[in-house]
């Protein structure tokens, strides 16, 4: 079994305010599990709002659309939105990564 590096995974946070119509991306938090992620998102991103809805999604699970520029010199296909080294599960025994 692969050992994951000892960091809490990154979650992206989306909040809908009471007066809002849709969830907005507000930033990210680290958490060890989904319950914690909701609590952290609530503690960090809703300290000044009442009646909110919170979505948290593991950053690794987000799939982003292609950039719309026709002139782009390289054309990435479906790819990850952020370049986080923590998305890569490297066994502990492997050094220098």
């Amino acid at each position: 079994m692969t050992q994951v590096q000892k960091q809490w995974p990154l979650y992206e946070v989306f909040i809908r305010a009471r007066s809002g119509l849709e969830h907005k991306h507000v930033g990210s938090i680290h958490a060890a599990d989904a319950t914690m992620a909701i609590e952290h998102a609530r503690d960090v991103y809703t300290r000044r709002q009442e009646g909110v809805s919170i979505w948290v999604v593991r950053s690794a699970d987000i799939i982003a659309s292609d950039p719309s520029d026709a002139d782009a010199l390289f054309e990435p296909a479906k790819d990850k939105v952020y370049r986080h080294p923590t998305f890569y599960e490297i066994p502990d025994e492997v050094k220098n990564l």
């Binding site: 809490w8 938090i29 680290h30 958490a31 914690m36 609590e39 952290h40 503690d43 960090v44 300290r47």
Partner: peptide, 11 residues
């Protein structure tokens, strides 16, 4: 132990 917990305990 983590920044998130600083905020949680402060809350």
């Amino acid at each position: 132990p983590a920044l998130e917990e600083d905020l949680a305990l402060a809350n």
